[in-house]
């Protein structure tokens, strides 16, 4: 059985940085991930990653990836189904039916868009329901669409869709938009966008594809239908922790609880980046946390080998 010193789950900024640091510490390391770059792929303009001035998400991912390749970190592109600790070893089961074994593991699996959890959402996923206006927006040329959410992502999404859709209905659960003032100003100037504050989508209906949404006014519970062919859900993110069981402690946001050394409650298991409870979700913070977690994994192995030598 091949045993790695360190198995890193996820290849976003945290995972790729952890990989580079681990290799430099001489650890036999593998990164297992569904994709490369994670949420950074979805980010257009990054203006606060030091050393780059302004860079788009994909270019930054490419630079990370080049560095990972230069350090010859092994990367397996497959989703992780489960992670279990038995004895002193971690067993990571993948979608490609492989079991990867490691002495330590770092979870850097990031976050994914939160779903609405209303009838019709799953049925019409990709059949009008989308979580990426940047990707799918052009497919809604000339038709009415709904955007659900009131933060930066939702407002950016509505503004983006104004290039294509005939009309945009923006539904915000809260009585005010929480997006940055500059975005709200742009929204107010855009004639195609109708904003409904204190409203939420309670059902998505259609035949082969989305045809309308049922909307509820939060205070009066009054319901009405709006004909749309697309529903863009932009209500925030949830951590990708489905593959870990209840033995790994999480907070109320379902983020994996870590201390300031990126340690979880399970010895030898670390977490870094957006999936962890570390405050502030930023690329530069995720990268830093990834580095810290890799160094901590190395120290953990060092202490363990010292202990077994005595």
């Amino acid at each position: 059985m091949e045993v790695y010193d360190l198995v890193i789950i996820g290849a976003g900024p945290a995972g790729m940085t952890a990989g580079v640091f681990a290799i430099r510490k001489g650890l036999k390391t593998v990164i297992v991930s569904e994709d490369i770059g994670g949420q950074v792929n979805w980010t257009n303009d990054i203006e606060n990653y030091m050393g780059f001035g302004e860079i788009d998400g994909q270019s930054l991912v490419r630079k990370f990836e080049e560095q990972v390749k230069e350090h010859r970190v092994m990367v397996k592109l497959t989703a992780v189904r489960s992670l279990k600790k038995e004895g002193e070893l971690f067993f990571i089961r993948t979608e490609s039916e492989e079991t990867i074994t490691g002495k330590t593991a770092i979870i850097c699996s990031g976050k994914r868009p939160k779903t609405l959890n209303v009838p019709g959402e799953e049925e019409f996923r990709n059949k009008g329901v989308s979580y990426c206006s940047t990707c799918d927006g052009p497919l809604f040329r000339g038709v009415p669409v709904a955007v659900v959410g009131g933060g930066n992502s939702a407002v950016k999404s509505a503004l983006d869709l104004a290039h294509y859709a005939s009309e945009i209905h923006l539904f915000s659960l809260l009585p005010n938009l929480t997006a940055d003032a500059i975005l709200v100003e742009r929204l107010q100037r855009e004639g195609k966008i109708k904003t409904y504050l204190g409203h939420t989508v309670v059902e998505i209906k259609g035949g082969q594809a989305v045809e309308k949404v049922t909307v509820e006014r939060v205070d009066t519970k009054e319901r009405f239908e709006v004909p749309v062919q697309g529903v863009f859900v932009e209500i925030g993110l949830i951590p990708n922790t489905d593959f870990v069981d209840d033995t790994v402690e999480r907070n109320e946001l379902q983020e994996i609880m870590v201390d300031c050394l990126c340690r979880t409650n399970i010895p030898g298991l670390f977490a870094a980046g957006d999936v962890s409870s570390v405050p502030e979700k930023q690329i530069i913070i995720a990268a830093g946390e990834g580095a810290k977690a890799a160094i901590q994994a190395w120290e953990y192995l060092l202490k363990r080998s010292d202990a077994s030598a005595q």
Partner: peptide
């Protein structure tokens, strides 16, 4: 593809 789609580039 669409030109602005990150997953298309990937």
């Amino acid at each position: 593809t669409t030109p602005t789609c990150p997953w298309c580039t990937r």
